[in-house]
Design a protein around this nucleic acid. Structure first.
Length: 232
DNA sequence: CCAGACGTTGTT
DNA sequence: GTCTGG
DNA sequence: CCAGACGTTGTT
DNA sequence: GTCTGG
């Protein structure tokens, strides 16, 4: 699944992908530790029907809720049930979006060591990783809050060795189909696939703490102190 | 009809 | 807002 | 997702 | 153990 990721593209790299697209910002800061409730770049269709890049808050807040803090736990939506769940049904029908990321973090549970091991997962060819998402608008005027969530599916291949769930990754021109296709076409893109285009790299447990946000989080760490022998 | 939920993951 | 459960 | 808090009254 | 905050 996907509860933490990194984004460090230049604006032009993403704009080239959605050739001719609009943007609400002159630049998007690199974030090496995006967590739920934070704001990050998202591609969605504007009023003119053209895709563009803007900043939304991670963690979908349904339009009808009173308490927006519910968003903190709505950062993933299961593709298997996204068409039925009240909070996600309409966003899936009318407001699908694409989340451009550099790579995501995944925590592998090491049961015998009673600890979790974070991995950084990213495309081997350094292409832009595009995740399937849906977004929602809460409130009006000053109080307006636009939020998004990342769609998940069953993990396959190498991915499944680390975690049972995986974000839905859009390959090639699938991102365009996700944004403008029919519901049937969109749900079809959520079928589990073996991600043989991905690289996996163990990283420091520092990534667990959102106060850390720098490129060193991406560095390979073969063994955390004490991991090998389960010391301490 | 009204009341109450509306989410996922992981672990047991 | 919309669906489910009673 | 993980990390960190988890409480109230009264006084400044 | 469970909730909140980032």
């Amino acid at each position: 699944m996907c509860g933490r990721y990194a984004y460090f593209y230049k604006l032009n790299q993403v704009l080239q992908l959605i050739a001719g697209g609009w943007t609400t910002e002159e630049a998007f800061d690199a974030i090496f530790n995006v967590a739920p409730t934070m704001r990050a770049p998202v591609i969605l269709l504007g009023k003119n029907g053209e895709p563009g890049l803007t900043k939304l808050t991670w963690g979908l807040v349904p339009s009808w809720t009173e308490d927006t803090s519910i968003g903190a736990k709505m950062f993933n939506a299961r593709s298997e049930t996204i068409r039925e769940k009240p909070a996600y049904k309409e966003p899936f029908e009318k407001r699908r979006c694409v989340v451009p990321i550099s790579g995501f973090y995944e925590w592998e549970t090491l049961r015998e060591l009673k600890r979790k091991k974070p991995w950084y997962v990213s495309p081997s060819d350094e292409s832009i990783m595009l995740l399937a998402g849906v977004w929602e608008r809460w409130g009006t005027g000053e109080d307006r809050l636009d939020t998004y969530t990342v769609v998940t599916t069953q993990a396959r291949g190498r991915m499944a060795e680390i975690h049972e769930r995986s974000p839905v990754m859009l390959r090639g021109t699938d991102w365009s189909t996700w944004l403008t296709g029919t519901q049937e076409e969109a749900i079809g893109l959520c079928e589990p696939r073996e991600p043989d285009w991905l690289s996996f790299r163990p990283v420091s447990t520092r990534v667990g703490n959102v106060k850390y946000n720098d490129p060193s989080l991406l560095e390979r760490v073969e063994n955390e102190p004490g991991e090998q022998l389960g010391l301490f």
